[in-house]
Design a protein around this nucleic acid. Structure first.
Length: 524
RNA sequence: AGGGGCGUAGCUCAGUGGUAGAGCAGCGGCCUUUUAAGCCGAAGGUCGUGGGUUCGAUCCCCACCGCCCCUACCA
């Protein structure tokens, strides 16, 4: 197969065969390196020119050539490896004609191994004095522009490998993402949680309200859903005596794509027996504060123009938040008591919608079938959510919108549930788990009866059976890892923190500019 | 899904109703301490795709494709 830019592709392939005819293997199997470029910098970066000349340091380093400055019979180049760059200096009269000929056939992007000793140049840059040079792999395609790198966002996502080579920030984001998941695992492992993996292919939807992807198993001739949440399986495990479990893995939701939504996204979910939502809020604070300190070096982090302080978490009931953030232009804010009264939320929605219709934004669906709890949730989203910049727990979620959460003992219209908002994004959702099988069955049936494309079509009876064997009082929580990584890397699009985000399929080559006609119609 | 924006050389970007330009990369030449190396020379393009207006379209209009932003959807 050949790729654009064809002239350069063919040119490089020709050089490769010239290298072969010089007697070099085109694709050697290994290179015995002693240091990465980063290790050289870390271990010898402080040595002076004098120290290096009196005490020779021999190194063998492999990497990709990312800069090339030939000067006739000598040359400088930079090798990139392990996220660092290391300069090398190669001279004809040092390496000999054969090796220098090889060098002259090298291009930006080629992967080489060099051996030699370290020295400092006139400008005091730590450099390998090359005595031996081996081609490890010839790049047949050129790197993006060396100064501006790869800026086209579409190309950065589609060809993430180039983004990672050329844009240091991309590399840093994904290294930090790995650090974050590593720290999360450490946090839970230290506290006696067991990491588990539960099915991603479900025959019954559950654990969240979302539209699923559907797939099919041939042998069983069975339709399956890609999971929208692992929740119901994880709680089965708690029934089974795994008192503390967590899973970090993908969920799939067949819904919109924007700056904070991707169809494939990573959630941490964890469950602990003999606990409740209140304890989870404390645990979450500890987790996130520690994570920010560990990963960003401080509990106060920069996010865009703002500073977010993980050392203090606000706690507001949903009704408090509605009252507090009620737009002044919408008239008197509903009191918490009014929102708690039967029919109160409906009255507040009526006032809000009057305001919305006169230019305040979108109205809330106030159809007669909608419950006070649903209306309360909608009011919260319309009025308060966007204001929650500093870490804020919203608690006291209405029962109608919390089908898996345990009711408050003193108020069955509310659940022991919270969500955590930071920078206007929902980051976490946790609650005391409903463990009354009869109540759970009633709420499942209510969902199925209600219908709608994002509601379960059938009751997960095995889950009810599991609850009937006894789920201890348990608290559980989900944390959106992608959004958390966004916060901790100062990224403002979820695609920046997902290596290969979903994009529309690329038009096959030939349908656009480059190839001959006759390939047929462009896909519709 | 609706509104707005963008699409020019491999990459980063200028530009114009009269057949298109720079830097980097690539090619040829010179150059033994450079670092966005330098100097000289040549090459590279169906200006996203298709249609229309026009004597003439990369530019104006329409449709389509792709990406981005906003809104909607979204526990």
């Amino acid at each position: 197969m050949e790729f654009e830019p064809l002239d350069q592709f063919l040119q490089r392939r020709k050089k490769l065969s010239e290298i072969e005819s010089l007697g070099h293997a085109p694709y050697p199997h290994k290179f015995a390196w002693t240091h990465t470029a980063r290790q050289v910098a870390e271990q010898f970066g402080h040595r002076t020119a004098d120290q290096l000349s009196s005490e020779r340091v021999e190194v063998r380093v492999a990497g990709r050539i990312v800069a090339l400055r030939p000067h006739g019979k000598a040359a400088f180049a930079h090798l990139a490896g392990d996220g660092a760059r290391l300069q090398m200096y190669i001279k004809l009269d040092v390496v000999g004609e054969q090796a220098y000929k090889l060098f002259q056939l090298l291009d930006l992007g080629d992967i080489v191994g060099v051996s030699g000793h370290l020295f400092r140049t006139k400008t005091n840059e730590l450099t390998v004095w090359v005595e031996g040079l081996e081609l490890l792999n010839k790049a047949l395609l050129p790197l993006p522009e060396k100064w501006h790198g790869l800026a086209d966002v579409e190309m950065r996502y589609r060809r993430r490998y180039l983004d990672l080579i050329v844009n240091e920030r991309a590399r840093e984001i994904f290294l930090r993402r790995a650090q974050i998941t590593r720290e999360l695992r450490r946090f839970f492992d230290e506290r006696g949680y067991v990491e588990v993996e539960t099915p991603m292919m479900h025959s019954i939807l559950g654990g969240a309200t979302a539209r699923p992807f559907v797939t099919h198993h041939n042998t069983f001739d069975m339709d399956l859903f890609l999971r929208i949440a692992p929740e119901l399986y994880l709680k089965r495990l708690v029934v089974g005596g795994l008192d503390r479990v967590y899973e970090i893995n993908r969920n799939f939701r067949n819904e919109g794509i924007d700056a904070i939504h991707q169809p494939e996204f990573t959630m941490l979910e964890f469950y602990q027996a003999y606990s409740d939502a209140l304890e989870l809020m404390d645990l979450t604070e500890e987790l996130l504060r520690g994570l920010a300190e560990k990963v960003c070096g401080s509990a106060k982090i920069k996010y865009g123009e703002r500073e977010i302080d993980f050392s203090h978490f606000e706690r507001l009931s949903m009704r408090d938040a509605i009252h507090m953030f009620w737009p002044t232009a919408a008239g008197a804010a509903p009191s918490v008591a009014e929102l708690a009264r039967k029919g109160g939320p409906r009255g507040a929605v009526a006032r809000y919608n009057a305001f919305a219709r006169s230019g305040g934004g979108e109205t809330i669906d106030d159809a007669g079938t909608r419950s006070d709890g649903e209306l309360t949730g909608d009011l919260f989203e319309a009025v308060a959510e966007g204001h929650l910049i500093q870490p804020t727990f919203i608690y006291d979620f209405p029962t109608e919108i919390s089908p898996l959460a345990k009711r408050r003992e003193d108020d069955p219209s509310l659940t022991e549930r919270f969500e955590l908002f930071i920078a206007g994004m929902e980051i976490a959702n946790g609650f005391s788990e409903l463990n009354d099988p009869a109540d759970q069955e009633r709420r499942f049936r209510a969902q199925v009866e209600k219908g709608g494309h994002d509601m379960p079509k059938e009751v997960d009876t095995d889950y009810i059976r599991a609850l009937s064997h006894g789920l201890p009082p348990t608290a559980g929580e989900g944390i959106g890892i992608d959004r958390l990584v966004m916060l901790l890397t100062d990224s403002h699009a979820i695609r920046e923190v997902i290596l290969f985000p979903l994009l529309r399929a690329e038009a096959p080559e030939g349908t656009s500019a480059e190839k001959s006609a006759g390939e047929g119609e462009p896909p519709k």
